[in-house]
Design a protein around this nucleic acid. Structure first.
Lengths: 351, 351
DNA sequence: AGGTACCGTGGGAGCGCTCCCACAAGTGAT
DNA sequence: ATCACTTGTGGGAGCGCTCCCACGGTACCT
């Protein structure tokens, strides 16, 4: 049964050439129409579009990728085990932002986990095979070799949270400095005098910026800046608890704490409770991230919100620009490769 | 500047041909080695492998896809908004299983959301372009056009949870019938006499199977099978509440309830409380899914656990087999295209 | 000795595109 | 009229593979 005309037999998809024949034009012209080149007359374009519709033509991605040396795909690389990916709303927000930015391109998004060594190995092969045009890198640790690998392979990449002030990769970050200032200014505004800070891991650039913001906010308000009021944490609950205990020991007169993360604040809260301090009556507490923890804490935690979804969108836009720019030949210097997005203070009962 | 030898200039990756030249063999032979064909002598294979290592050769995926007419990628299609994807552990478990099954293939996994109309549109184009070799379809509703679209496009697909007893697509499911039996037998074993059932949505095949299991378990134990003890729910909390109220009205003497989902059980629990019945003293309660809800309910809910991760693995294995089988020419009939995995009862305080 | 079978191997053809050069036809300055 | 561009178009070349046919060599039958 089933003879075969121009449409070909089952499974045989129409090709550019067939569309060209049908429209009575050349292969090149069809290609131009498909790719939206302006150098096509209106009449020709209409004819080609009709032929495309009649034949149900869909470009062959593999052929395009081979000929044009690109894949029309970017990867979102998550250097974490899947468990964390699902547990933290950060990733879900980020994914939504990336998806939104991609929704009217023909770029495809690949989600790649690189939590285990095995997965990292796979990822390395993957990148070596240049199976994506660019990479979005989130939640990178300071000593991660991934960024350098990407530079080496000359794969465009955008990182969330620069590794240092001298970050070479394009990056998008929230305003850690400004966020910290907001937190501290808020506390001062509520009449607090002695504001302590539990830092994040000191090898994380963002944590450093938060310390800077904390110090500058105090100084600018004419408040005391005492190193005894700053205690290193590590973003963990237990770290927050220990740090809080140490602070209470050193400066029992403190009346406010700015913690570098909500989880840290949760630890600090325990230590404060243990010491018999009431929140916010005796000590006001502010966290960072505005995570679910903040909303569900008792009392609900004032926290600094980062615009994660927007960050995802911004990262994607940046990456797409880099990919497009790399296309023709020399990659001209991109201005504004480091983006910083504003944070927002969400005031709740803890302060 | 930059002359170019066999290694090519920066960005120029070595090709098959270059490897062949280096190893002193033909193109075809290198291809055979790369693809693990047995028809290569050991000496030749060694020479080629050495050349591959020296040159750092990595096959060009696009070229391979074009020549071989396959993509080495499969998609996990989630016909839900991202929100649900992150909220329900089902997907995370599924993803882990799929990832595990894929980890020692060269298949790549694409995660595709098709919750909104816009996303579905994109997906349709995507499938039309045959950008994947196969599709894993999870959480499909009865009237979803996706399965038929896949058949039409002749794209191998595996569905989680057949749409009916006459499912044409390959499918993997947990043993809904057996799971229901386990639940009911457990209740009977604890001395319960009058076991009610709140069903799931009746247009879901799995819900029907659970009803069958419930009935057969009662009958086989010589217990009463009364249609007044069966009340339709819809997997929702509110539905569970209403159904429970109706059951209490009709058969106030009931002493056990098997709910078709944990969420339904949560609703039933409310209605029981409202009616002043104690759990498990007056009425024993068993749910289905063993979700987080079950563990956190008061009292903790006995529930039927489905091996989601294994299901993901099984689906993937099935799909890979289909993809491989479709390769040569005629797709011979696959036996065992419908898989059913055993469930497990997790007993807690509610029964 | 010839025949037949199977290795292992080389390399042509072709997958469906994009890129780019060539060219005809039109436009306007000289 | 000539020259110099510009615009729209056709089609060759080539991207890097896989597939498959052809070929020489060895082995084992008659």
């Amino acid at each position: 049964m089933a003879g075969h005309g121009a449409r070909g037999r089952s499974g045989g998809r129409p090709t550019l050439e067939e569309v060209a024949a049908r429209a009575g034009v050349g292969r090149g012209t069809v290609s131009r129409v498909i790719n939206g080149s302006p150098r096509v007359s209106d009449a020709t374009r209409a004819a080609v579009e009709a032929a495309v519709a009649e034949l149900g033509y869909v470009p062959n991605t593999a052929a395009r990728a081979l000929a044009a040396n690109r894949t029309d795909a970017i990867a979102l690389v998550v250097p974490e085990p899947e468990t964390r990916f699902f547990a933290e709303p950060y990733f879900s927000d980020m994914l939504r932002g990336v998806g939104a930015a991609l929704s009217d391109t023909r770029m495809q998004l690949l989600l790649i986990f690189a939590g285990s060594d095995r997965e990292r190995q796979r990822l390395a092969e993957y990148l070596a095979a240049h199976r994506v045009d660019g990479v979005l890198l989130v939640s990178v640790h300071a000593d991660d070799p991934l960024p350098d690998m990407l530079s080496q392979l000359e794969i465009p990449a955008v990182i969330s949270g620069p590794r240092s002030a001298a970050e070479t990769l394009a990056s998008v970050d929230s305003d850690n400095y400004g966020g910290a200032r907001q937190a501290v200014e808020h506390l001062i505004g509520r009449g607090r005098r002695t504001v302590a800070h539990i830092t994040g891991r000191l090898d994380v650039y963002g944590a450093q910026r938060r310390i800077d913001g904390y110090r500058d906010a105090l100084r600018d308000a004419g408040h005391e800046v005492d190193d005894l009021l700053v205690e290193p944490g590590d973003f963990s609950e237990d770290g927050g608890r220990r740090a809080m205990a140490a602070l209470l020991e050193r400066r029992p007169d403190l009346d406010a704490v700015f913690a570098a993360s909500d989880v840290t604040a949760a630890g600090a809260r325990h230590a404060l409770r243990d010491a018999g301090r009431r929140i916010p009556d005796d000590v006001a507490l502010v966290g960072y991230d505005d995570s679910a923890i903040a909303r569900h804490m008792d009392p609900p935690l004032t926290s600094v919100r980062q615009p994660i979804e927007e960050m995802g969108r911004a990262m994607t836009d940046l990456l797409l620009a880099e990919v497009a720019d790399r296309r023709p030949s020399v990659s001209r210097e991109l201005e504004r490769r480091q983006m910083v997005l504003a944070t927002e203070l969400v005031a709740r009962a803890s302060s």
